[in-house]
């Protein structure tokens, strides 16, 4: 085989491989939607985060607006401190309500943000005051059974 034909084919191969990688990164992965420089951080305390994990999505009205970056246990309050990074394009009022929700019955857990009516917006490093913890399935079932046994026998 001629040297130039060989070079041509290898060139096509390498460019094709890199194009596949770029396609995976942009179209399949989140590199196209995820930009570190354009986020701001807020935090929130939850008494129970259930199965929430770092990198879980944060949605408002079903739209992805950010991701959970860090989850730690605050030993002064014995509550979970969740740090979220939100997209700069989306600003939320100070009295926004953060809620740990589950997508579907067995799906992943995410944080849903319900905007309040405050005219001031959340800034970088501020805290969301109003939160609601995850619903833990075992507690729910336990409560249900407990209620049943509490019922007086007729």
């Amino acid at each position: 085989m001629e040297r130039t034909t060989l070079d041509l084919w290898v060139g096509i191969f390498v460019v094709g491989g890199i194009a596949a990688l770029v396609m995976l990164a942009m179209k399949v992965g989140n590199l196209g939607t995820y930009n570190v420089s354009e986020t701001y951080q807020v935090n929130a305390y939850f008494s129970n985060i259930g199965g929430l994990k770092p990198k879980a999505s944060i949605k408002s009205a079903g739209v992805l607006v950010g991701r959970v970056t860090e989850i730690t246990l605050d030993t002064e309050r014995y509550e979970a401190k969740v740090v979220m990074s939100l997209d700069k394009r989306y600003q939320f009022p100070k009295d926004t309500f953060a809620n740990i929700l589950t997508s579907g019955l067995l799906g992943e857990q995410y944080i849903g943000l319900m905007p309040g009516g405050d005219s001031e917006m959340l800034k970088n490093g501020e805290q969301i005051k109003k939160t609601q913890s995850a619903v833990v399935l075992e507690d729910l079932i336990g409560k249900f059974i407990y209620n049943k046994t509490e019922e007086p026998v007729k």
Partner: peptide, 19 residues
């Protein structure tokens, strides 16, 4: 199909690890 995919696949954790 695409948005769920993009939400689930992380560039560093999934794609770079695969590479």
């Amino acid at each position: 199909f695409w948005s769920q995919m993009q939400a689930a696949v992380d560039f560093r954790d999934d794609i770079l690890n695969g590479v």
